[in-house]
């Protein structure tokens, strides 16, 4: 649920996104001002990890956006996908900061590091560049445990940003 402050700002963002998006970023759906879906692709063909893959992002906005960050995850299943899913409807990119359930550990999405001058487009670009710069075909070290045990919303998790190398 977004406040009128958030709604106004999201309206402006939507007008811009509908007019033009940067290369490799596509607006899929924005039916309301609480949840948007966007697709991103990695444009660097020399990086074999992400060639010919499209990843779907889900942005969830609170009433305090953009003072507080949106919640951003890689979607694994289409909203009306098969239940239970045999395979993931959407791939989740391989990255040491991306869990296989789509949860992303990126400092700018954390409450402390978020800045209200970021927006949906700049978050997409940051995620693109986070993937582009990665050559490790790895999940985070505690991926299996985390995916099995995590019941929290991404916004309630405080990640430790200890590994600045990737």
């Amino acid at each position: 649920m977004a406040s009128s402050f958030a709604v106004k700002r999201l309206q402006r963002e939507l007008i811009k996104l509908q007019a033009q998006t940067p290369p490799g970023i596509t607006l899929i759906s924005a039916n309301d001002f609480s949840e948007w879906h966007l697709d991103i692709r990695v444009l660097d063909d020399t990086n074999p990890l992400y060639t010919n893959q499209t990843y779907r992002l889900r942005f969830t906005f609170s009433a305090t956006y953009p003072i507080e960050p949106p919640e951003v995850v890689f979607l694994t299943r289409a909203p009306n996908g098969a239940d239970p899913p045999v395979l993931n409807d959407y791939p989740v990119p391989m990255h040491p900061h991306v869990y296989s359930n789509g949860i992303i550990c990126l400092d700018l999405l954390d409450k402390q590091a978020w800045s209200p001058v970021h927006n949906v487009e700049s978050v997409c670009i940051s995620l693109q560049s986070m993937l582009t710069g990665n050559r490790k075909n790895e999940r985070p070290p505690n991926d299996a445990d985390f995916v099995r045990s995590n019941m929290r919303r991404p916004r309630d998790i405080s990640f430790l940003f200890h590994d600045e190398k990737v």
């Binding site: 003072i67 507080e68 800045s115 209200p116």
Partner: peptide, 17 residues
């Protein structure tokens, strides 16, 4: 009004932190 709202939660420059 908006920058004050941001600073109430997080007293850092939005661009430079």
């Amino acid at each position: 009004a908006t920058i004050v709202e941001h600073l109430k939660r997080n007293p850092v420059d939005p661009l430079t932190r």
